[in-house]
Design a protein around this nucleic acid. Structure first.
Lengths: 156, 156
DNA sequence: ATGAATGCAAACTATTTGCACGCGC
DNA sequence: GCGCGTGCAAATAGTTTGCATTCAT
């Protein structure tokens, strides 16, 4: 359960309570949390911990590849434990991010990419839409028009 | 050529010089530009145009689906003229964006996505790396290379 | 002529950083 | 005890917004 303790101390990083708490929160959540959400949960456990520390540690953990960043279209960046290699279906309503168990960097796509002579370092694949529940909710409530926009056309 | 003029005026939006310029810049670039880059190019043509206007118009164009937002992991959001459906190989050195003539939303990937019950509205696929030329340059100049290699990340 | 669009500056959100102190090793 | 890690607050980067004015239609 504490493989991350090894990972950190092996590289000379200290095991501080704040790190412990942050990692615990990430571990207990199956959603992708924003830094602020993590900060709030952190403060519930130990109010003295500052948001700056949360950010600093998240950045460290990302660098160490123990956490991965998820840049969804709208809001702030989200974080998830144990990067691995995953792509997601992101719900634009509730923010749920469902893992897609497959990577597009294979087969035909990969072949074509190879042909370009590009030296590939990374790739992003992300699907935006509405999860089944939110999709149903949408259809059931026709009154709820766009809350954004203002002037102009609201089509999607 | 001016399909976007129709698109705008058909919906009651005015054709202002600033809009014209912004769209022209987007059209002339095969890279993905940040709002600031667009703002700079805009100012070269007409220095009185403000960055706020650039942002406002980019947001409008995104809403009208004439421009697409691209949220790469690194810097700020980038914008691209919505020229049909395309994915890109983006060079992290020179910024070139080579069109990839294929879409990952097909075959096995598509099947798996369908199974999730997600109502898909859009997707992004982007490959980051170095184009052939920049890749060669990197190897030939060991001095300036390796800015961010990716080996040990003990400290900065 | 009319109201949408603009420019400016100030506001806002998300994130980073300098500094002095505290605590894990 | 040493020096990394932290808290705080101020700084920054990116983007949005209120208001008076300008300009496309």
């Amino acid at each position: 359960m504490s493989t991350w303790v090894e990972k950190l101390s092996a590289r000379g990083y200290k095991i501080t309570p704040q790190r412990r708490i942050i990692l615990e929160i990430l571990d207990n959540s199956d959603r992708h949390l924003t830094a602020e959400e993590i900060g709030l949960q952190v403060k519930e456990i130990e109010p003295s911990i500052s948001l700056a520390t949360v950010y600093r540690n998240l950045n460290l953990l990302v660098e160490l590849q123990m956490v991965s960043r998820l840049n969804i279209h709208d809001g702030p960046v989200r974080y998830e434990l144990h990067g691995g290699h995953n792509h997601h279906l992101v719900c634009m309503n509730c923010g749920a991010a469902v893992k897609l168990g497959v990577c597009p960097m294979q087969g035909e796509v990969k072949r074509i990419v190879d042909e370009t002579g590009f030296e590939v370092s990374s790739h992003h694949f992300e699907i935006l839409g509405y999860c089944r529940e939110c999709s149903l909710k949408k259809e059931l409530s026709p009154t709820s028009a766009g809350a954004k926009g203002g002037t102009g056309v609201d089509q999607e």
